[in-house]
Design a protein around this nucleic acid. Sequence first.
DNA 1: CTATATTTTGAGTAATGACTCACTCACTGA
DNA 2: TCAGTGAGTGAGTCATTACTCAAAATATAG
Lengths: 218, 218
Amino acid sequence: MSDEMRQFDQIEEELTEKHWKILEAAVKVFSEKGYGASRTSEVAKEAGVSEGTIFNYFKTKKDLLTSMVIPLVVRFFRPLILLSVEKIFRTRKDRELEDVLLDVMRDRVKLVKSNLPLIKTVATEAAYHPELLDPIREQMAPKLVEIAAKFFQEEVAKGTLRDVDPVLALRALMSLLGGYILMREVMPEAMRLQDEETELRRLLDLYLHGVAKQDRQE
Amino acid sequence: MSDEMRQFDQIEEELTEKHWKILEAAVKVFSEKGYGASRTSEVAKEAGVSEGTIFNYFKTKKDLLTSMVIPLVVRFFRPLILLSVEKIFRTRKDRELEDVLLDVMRDRVKLVKSNLPLIKTVATEAAYHPELLDPIREQMAPKLVEIAAKFFQEEVAKGTLRDVDPVLALRALMSLLGGYILMREVMPEAMRLQDEETELRRLLDLYLHGVAKQDRQE
DNA sequence: CTATATTTTGAGTAATGACTCACTCACTGA
DNA sequence: TCAGTGAGTGAGTCATTACTCAAAATATAG
């Protein structure tokens, strides 16, 4: 873990221009055909280098897969996911809870959309290379839980939210958003999806007030 | 589409004992290493037949993948998913809405759990072989939407549920359950998951009543 | 401009694995 | 008993591909 962290920072510092060009080519190719069906020759072509060059920068093909996610998570997700959420949360004082949450949802959807190839690759390959999830488990999730828990607890104290477990509230929001994105990608017609803004507002309404008619406060 | 349906029934009728033995071996092997990294020789070993035999029953390795899901969806999911849900819904008259929904949730989680290898394989491979999802898109989803919509509409008429879009209500419930199962499989500690019965009750409470304190009925 | 170090190249290699096919052999019906 | 049948076999084929390495290109130093 401590080793892993150190490794991240090293990679973050030492990644060169060319490292990135190859990594981005790999993301593109892997996301289109899958890691197993992708050929290193295709990655080379996509990156505009020779096949040999790839192996100057990455020991093996597998190394290309794992290296792909670590620096991207560290450099891209960590600041973007956590800082931008935190920033939005900090605007709470001036605004309605609904507006703040809606902003967070829009922001998350946008982030996922702009990284679909990467997320698709990591998500599918993680099923067979669990180490890909280590940074998420060990870095992102705990940090996210911490920030969200603090936010929800303040709302509970303020009396705007029921006294539900903050982690449960976080998971539920993530599930609703994740489900929406997945269904939008995979079967939008079958699930009768409308435009994004409408869907997000409907989701938020359901998240806040539930589906039941009579609300009993316990 | 009509062709596809006919094809399903044919396969359903014509699958022999040995077809199934090989398919089940393939599910096991594919779910452990992924389709791309699995070797037909391993499937043969797992099934207890020679490698050649596999190709007597399935034209290609890819055919093994696609054949794997079609009959399983048709023979296994269609009756189990739809009929058992329908059956539970039909007990509604005698029971509280909460109890009915909780039963459905328990039932779905159980079904997914008992088919994890298959679901894992189809879910991951579908990212690169979209035709795997055709039966789900064309058969299951519409049927599911139909049943759920009917159920939710009746509840709305009865006054137990708010007037939310039934398909949205269905999607939300699926998202919450899916998210729970995924997090349980992938990062239970980070998300502080408790025992299943507790989690399902908490999820249902949140689904019914939302996280907000003041419920405003619109 | 020459010498030296560094990077890039891509043809070659060795291994692998999907698929074939000539053969075996258990079974059936006469 | 025996010819006919076809399911089952697995060694072999052939294409594929991750990776290597000697040489070429390019950058840097003197």
